[in-house]
Design a protein around this nucleic acid. Sequence first.
DNA 1: ACAAAAGTGTTACGAATACACCCATGT
DNA 2: ACATGGGTGTATTCGTAACACTTTTGT
Lengths: 209, 209
Amino acid sequence: MIDLTPVSVDVLALRFDPDERAVLIGVAPRAAEPFLGEQALPGVLLGKGERLRDAAVRAVSSKLGLPAGAVTATGQLATFDEPSRDPRGPTLSIALWATLSTGGGDVRWSPLASVPPLAFDHDRIVAACRPMLADKLWRDVAFSAGLMGREFTTAQALDVTEALTGDRPYPANLGRSMERLPGLRRTAEHAAALPKGGRPPSMWRWEDS
Amino acid sequence: MIDLTPVSVDVLALRFDPDERAVLIGVAPRAAEPFLGEQALPGVLLGKGERLRDAAVRAVSSKLGLPAGAVTATGQLATFDEPSRDPRGPTLSIALWATLSTGGGDVRWSPLASVPPLAFDHDRIVAACRPMLADKLWRDVAFSAGLMGREFTTAQALDVTEALTGDRPYPANLGRSMERLPGLRRTAEHAAALPKGGRPPSMWRWEDS
DNA sequence: ACAAAAGTGTTACGAATACACCCATGT
DNA sequence: ACATGGGTGTATTCGTAACACTTTTGT
């Protein structure tokens, strides 16, 4: 019988903050050795028979202190298998994304653009997964809907796109991209204008289904 | 201490057969219960500290009877976590692709278009991974080079594309696509014409680097 | 000569991008 | 009125697909 490799599920827990106009990733200081006190992605050991999504939710609630219901969607990113990534011994890390609806919790919410140094190989994981996340926006419906919430404005969509891809599209072009997304509809109402004035952006809503 | 989930690495072992003009996937009958005697993807339990690539090579050599050197490249596809996928109990399956240079072995080489019924949820794994493989062709250099070999003809590239994507591109257009691939060069020589006659196709070679 | 199959050049189409201009709001 | 910023319409660009025509082989 071969010794089994422990599997940890490490979560890129993402949230869009409309006030800060930024996409934030949730990290928390480690409560145990190794790397005690250092910031890390929320992660748990995968239990026997546990689904990856359930483990991701468990990581978010136990490590970030958020209710399970705050997780709006999850999905796979990649698996990291460097044997030396954990000083306690070889551990597989399966990286998932999770989108969250609420802030708060015992969490440091860090803008994606400026993630602090993290424990283990989590810096490397974030760096490797960033382009995958940018690729999912406005392509993976579950990810986009989970991140934006049920209803949002064009202005917010612009902010999120800029946060994930690095540059800000023309509002007109982004609107046309979103119109091609299945399940997303431009509503009749308009949002209130931004503090600085300007034309109020139109609103978008995911069809309930 | 939580019970650990065993991790198996299941391999989509691919080979291009220029004579059959088909992309073949290697499957072998299971040597033990459960599903004794039924065809299955080559897979092994991941050892402690073992890299995914090494486990994939081990699966190919132990289950398909091919030398380790026959594996030209490997890569990740996706992870399957249904707890009931193995009747012995919950097991995680990480699916990898591997490209092979040689045939033979104790293997049933099955055309990708007509894979026989497989043990476990391997049918589902193959179905889910097929589009990912098609997507990698002429985009993922390691995959394309591993599958085609160091040197190949336009005619073979057409055959492989048809096998993976389902339709045959115009030779001219495929040539232009390949010219855009980094590391791939059209050589001066020409191959011998095909049995039925016709203009001999030009040859392509990956730059050694 | 004819058939078969690859290659060349060109055209057509569509998605993504860019931008000039219009509209709605706050100050 | 003016500044701010989203929306509309349109032009441009680029990658892909399509196809007529040419080239090179076998029979």
